[in-house]
Each structure stands twice: as structure tokens, then as C-alpha cells.
Computed example of a mutant assay.
Amino acid sequence: MAVQAQVKSLGNIRRQFEPWNDPAERPLIEVAGVTKRFGTFTAVDDLSLGIYRREFFALLGPSGCGKSTLLRMLAGFEEPTSGDLRLEGQSLVGVPPHKRPVNMMFQSYALFPHMSVEKNVAFGLKQDGMAKSEIADRVAEMLKLVKLTPFAKRKPQQLSGGQQQRVALARSLAKRPKVLLLDEPLGALDKKLREETQFELMDLQFELGLTFVIVTHDQEEAMVMADRIALMREGRIAQVATPAVIYEAPVSRYVADFIGNVNILDATVESRSDGRLRLAGPGGAIEVETPLALKPGAKAGIAIRPEKMRIGRDRPAGAVNAFEGEIYDIAYLGDVTLYVVKLRTGELMRATVINAARGIEAPLTWDEAVWLSFAPDAGVVLVD
């Protein structure tokens, strides 16, 4: 396991907001040793977690890791097999969904097709017995908030997917819950609309000052929107951190490999000096800055992000970590070009180059001999 570096969050940075680093702050939501079993299958395994007031929190992970089960337990649709769920210090175990100050927005939106937009938004308020005049005011407020006032009389099938998503959001917010739970809310949208909606959700959450908990398997979605991310694996938490920390200082191979693209080199520790480890890796010696004090002979993985790799035809002068190879594949992605390089020892390494100019005179091409290099502070040492 790596020691987390002190990385300033580059994620949702519109505000100074780090209550998890304040010992005086208590989480709004406390998940305390929660386990959920379905027969012999353990979906959530002795999981503990704190989510703070006004936080935009993401549960991220592959299918079957337990993130949706955890969200459903917070909503009250499932009960824990053991452990406790608390909101503002009060246990939620045994409290039915309609009596919890939380609301949930589903991936399918679950809109009533026979009702207009305004009636969909008003449905929960009517169920709670709110006065008609108050309902009308609240619905108008919600539709204005999600920019759907001109569409109040339309039916859901007369709206685009993005507009339907905003109707579902308005309905979820109409009851003014303390916590809004979002289960893959953008999954049905196309890529461009999904990106636009991510920023709309961030702005809305910030404006309302609510706590949002979102479940997603899309790492980019979590990185864009969340104050913190909990990456899950087989019912447990692999790492909880800000987007910048979880990307730049992963605590395990699983985290490093799940978040973004990464190169991981297997190496053996040779010595430590002046805050650096010297390791024997494929193609030669590797030096990495790290707080870990590993003993000679210890096995470790060195994780380097492709954008931190340098690629060129000549060996860079003075480079500590340099590897010779041959271009195995090339992917032009518009903003960057991805090079897959096969080292002389057989490993495949990735390097990305920003396409800052519209064209270059002598671009690197397939089967060309190249050198890869990275700075000692660009690698992260992983022992798990």
C-alpha cells in the first residue's frame, strides 16, 4: 500500500471545502460496519464511511462491487444484515423510505407518462398532503431551478432525454431532502449531453447546499463532479479521497489501474537515499521519490501515468529513468496522441503527447525506435 502524498485537490475547486480534514466536524451520514448479504453472497462487507454535509460524494466501482446496494440501504429499500446507518446521529435502520429525509433519483427516471411535467414534480408533495398553493409555488420554483418552466404542461414523451432527466431531478428535489441519492443518473444520456449535465448538477448542488451521493461506474463522471470519491471493490472500500489524490496518489494497484490509464512496472528495491528509492526494473535502474522506507529486496510496483511519460527519438540527456523501445501502436485522439511502446524487455508502456499544434514535420510512427523517460517524482510506489 502506498502512503498518500499531499496532493492539493484539482477537482471540484470552486470552494474551500474539506470538512473531512477537520477533527471538529462530524459526518452527516455515518456508515458503521455495515454488511449486506443476499443468501451466501456478500454484497457489502463490513464497510465504514463518513459523508459530510454539503458534500458531493461519489461511490465508484465496477458492476457488482456493492455501490448500488449501499445506496439502496441509505434510501431504505434494503436493510443491512449487520452494522448501522446514521443520519445526523440518528439510526436509519428500520426506518421506512418515506420517513427518511432522503430522496432517490433512479437511472430510469421513473416518470409517470400520463402526467405533465408539473404534475410529475408535484406528485410527492401531494402524497405528503401539502397545501395546493404551496405545491404550486414549490413546483414553479423547481422548474425554474432546472430551466424547464416553458415545458410545464408537456408529457415526458414530448421531452428529450436530458429534459426528462431534469424533470426527475426536480421531482427528487421538490421535497427538499437533506440528502439526494443519485443512481447512475446520467447513464441514459449521450456523451456530450452527459458532460454538460455534469456541470449543471455541480452548479445545482452548490447553489442548493445539499448533500449529493452519486453511484456511477464512470470514472470520468466521478472525477468531474465529486468532492470525494469512494472507490469500491468486492463490497469494500479500496480508497476514499479527493479526485486529485485518488488519481495522483493511489494506494494500491487496483486503484491505480481503475482510475485513468496507467503504466505499472514491477521492480525490486535496491537501496534508499535522500527520500528516493532505487529499484531494479525492466530495462535498468529506476529512481522514485517516495516516503516509503522499503528494505532492499522488497518487491514493488511503480505506477506512472501516460501523460507523465516523455517520448522521443533520442535518449534524454540527464534522464534518471529512461527506457528504450519501439512504437507498437498509435491512437490519435484529437487533443492528444497515445503511443504504445514495446520495451526491449517485452513490456508495453503508454505515453501521451498533447497535440498543441495542428501538424508536425516529422511525427513518430509505427515500428520506430524511441526512448521513454519519466521524472523521479512522477512515479508512485505500490506494494499492494
Rank of each mutant, 00 (worst) to 15 (best):
D257Q: 15
F258N: 09
F258I: 10
F258C: 11
F258M: 11
I259F: 00
G260S: 14
G260D: 11
G260W: 11
N261V: 06
N261R: 15
N261C: 04
V262S: 02
V262W: 01
V262E: 09
V262H: 07
N263I: 03
N263V: 04
N263T: 09
N263L: 11
L265D: 01
L265T: 09
L265K: 05
L265M: 14
L265A: 11
L265N: 00
L265I: 13
D266P: 04
D266R: 15
D266S: 15
D266G: 15
A267M: 10
A267Y: 00
T268Q: 15
T268H: 05
T268G: 06
T268C: 02
V269R: 00
V269G: 01
E270C: 05
E270P: 08
E270Y: 04
E270L: 14
E270I: 05
S271I: 02
S271Y: 06
R272T: 02
R272Q: 08
R272Y: 03
R272E: 10
S273E: 12
S273Y: 08
S273R: 09
S273D: 09
D274Y: 14
D274I: 10
D274E: 14
D274S: 14
G275M: 12
G275D: 05
G275Q: 07
G275I: 07
G275N: 12
G275E: 08
R276Q: 15
L277R: 07
L277C: 05
L277M: 13
L277G: 08
R278T: 14
R278W: 07
R278A: 05
R278E: 09
R278Q: 14
R278L: 08
R278S: 13
L279K: 03
A280N: 12
G281R: 09
G281A: 11
G281F: 00
P282H: 12
P282A: 12
P282M: 02
P282Q: 12
P282W: 05
G283H: 03
G283V: 03
G283I: 06
G284T: 00
A285D: 11
A285L: 13
A285P: 03
A285V: 05
A285I: 09
I286E: 01
I286M: 02
I286R: 10
E287D: 08
E287A: 02
E287M: 08
E287N: 04
E287C: 09
E287K: 02
V288E: 00
V288P: 01
V288L: 09
E289L: 13
E289D: 08
E289R: 10
T290A: 13
T290Q: 02
